[in-house]
């Protein structure tokens, strides 16, 4: 898949939830296009509907209004905010549970073992989730998602509550895999640094009812992205300014 092919197109998406005091409008008129191979960070205040947006894209929730265009054969993977692993399946079993729907047995095994090796989970492939630490479960979630060789990967605050070393390890793995496989990546975060260091484009969302407040294209190659780079610093400050201006 080459760049400039549209992987996903959201057009004027609206979504609300019913509560005791009537209807709570969460998403109001969200339009977004995701190109193949593109990395997009969604950043915004807590509760602004970032997870709801990912749920709509993944098909878990339906929009009240608006359209979502994607190929029916789009191979989509989702790394949830809290690990959603089957407790009665081993590490390997959890990966195979989703992988068997997409890849042939032999290819699946090769991809699986390579990813388990890279994340240091190969020795634990016969362990159950209850026997893994929180960080290992998070790694397994990512391995499971990558193991289907997705075209679009959704990640909901994937690096939250991870220690620094593990966070950098996972980010490095993600970027290497992205470079090799060329999937589109849409992830949510609260961390402006993370957004600017990883994404090609940062989408800043407003508070509820949520709209896209600003989109920023980060025009640097990843090798040049260091925290001391003035362009990176400028973008981080811009995001912080926008977020604070909106009383977040």
């Amino acid at each position: 898949m080459t760049k400039n092919t549209i992987t996903l197109e959201l057009n004027q998406i609206h979504k609300g939830f019913k509560n005791t005091s009537g209807e709570l409008k969460v998403l109001a008129d969200i339009s977004l296009t995701v190109q193949a191979g593109e990395i997009i960070a969604l950043i915004g205040p807590s509760g602004c509907g970032k997870t709801t947006l990912l749920n709509i894209i993944s098909g878990i929730a339906a929009p009240d209004r608006g359209t979502l265009r994607q190929s029916p054969s789009l191979r989509l993977a989702y790394v949830f905010q809290e690990p959603r692993l089957l407790p009665w399946k081993t590490v390997e079993g959890n990966i195979r549970f989703v992988q068997d729907n997409f890849l042939a047995a032999q290819e699946g095994k090769e991809v699986r073992e390579k990813l388990l090796q890279k994340t240091g989970l190969l020795a634990y492939k016969d362990s159950y989730p209850a026997q893994l630490s929180g960080g290992m479960k998070q790694r397994l979630e990512l391995v499971r998602a990558l193991a289907i060789k997705p075209q679009l990967l959704l990640m909901d605050e994937p690096f939250k509550s991870l220690d620094l070393a593990l966070k950098f390890d996972l980010q490095r793995l993600l970027l290497t895999e992205h470079e090799q496989e060329g999937f589109a990546l849409l992830f949510t975060t609260h961390d402006p640094d993370e957004a600017v260091m990883l994404a090609d484009r940062v989408v800043v969302l407003s508070d509820k009812p949520t709209q896209i407040h600003q989109e920023m294209v980060i025009g640097l190659t990843r090798e040049k992205r260091t925290k001391t780079n003035p362009h990176i610093q400028e973008n981080v400050e811009r995001i912080i300014r926008v977020l604070l201006e909106r009383h977040i």
Partner: peptide
């Protein structure tokens, strides 16, 4: 039900969800 959602996102069949979830 969050596990059922996960299985649906990864396109597991109804039968697989019944048997494995």
């Amino acid at each position: 039900l969050r596990l059922v959602e996960m299985a649906e996102v990864y396109r597991c069949s109804r039968r697989k969800i019944m048997l494995d979830v």
